[in-house]
């Protein structure tokens, strides 16, 4: 149980950072932390203590195995997050070129 609570705490750290930080780079890092928490949660759901990998061996199918599907899903999700992070960093660089600052309180040409 304690690992789930810690995983949720990690998610809260991420969302706290995304909502309260003023620096563009710190916001991007917080988004990353949120993503890690979601990925970790998937892996925790699939984990079984003492189980092994799900590969067909010479002795036949290993019956006590970890669910391999969430791991495949998480690989997809990690790739998506990589793309999004790259795009966000690119946008941050462009914003820095235009405004000469990473502070979001000074990047305010659009009124909310």
């Amino acid at each position: 149980m304690i690992v789930y609570i810690l995983c949720f705490a990690l998610f809260l750290v991420g969302i706290y950072g995304a909502l309260t930080k003023r620096d563009l780079i710190k916001i991007i890092l917080s988004i990353g932390i949120m993503g890690y928490a979601a990925n970790l949660m998937f892996i925790l759901f699939a984990y079984k203590t003492g189980a092994s990998f799900a590969i067909l061996t010479e002795e036949g199918i290993n019956t006590n195995m970890v669910d391999p599907l969430p791991q495949a899903l998480i690989l997809t999700s990690i790739v998506i997050e990589l793309g999004i992070t790259a795009l966000l960093v690119t946008l941050a660089i462009r914003l820095f070129e235009k405004y000469k600052t990473f502070d979001i309180t000074k990047i305010r040409r659009l009124s909310g």
Binding site: L24, I84, L87, L88, L91, A92, R94, L95, K98, Y99, I107, R109, L110
Partner: peptide, 11 residues
């Protein structure tokens, strides 16, 4: 500049 700002917010 506004477009980057909007895109960042959206992303």
């Amino acid at each position: 500049a506004e477009e980057y700002e909007a895109a960042f917010k959206y992303a």
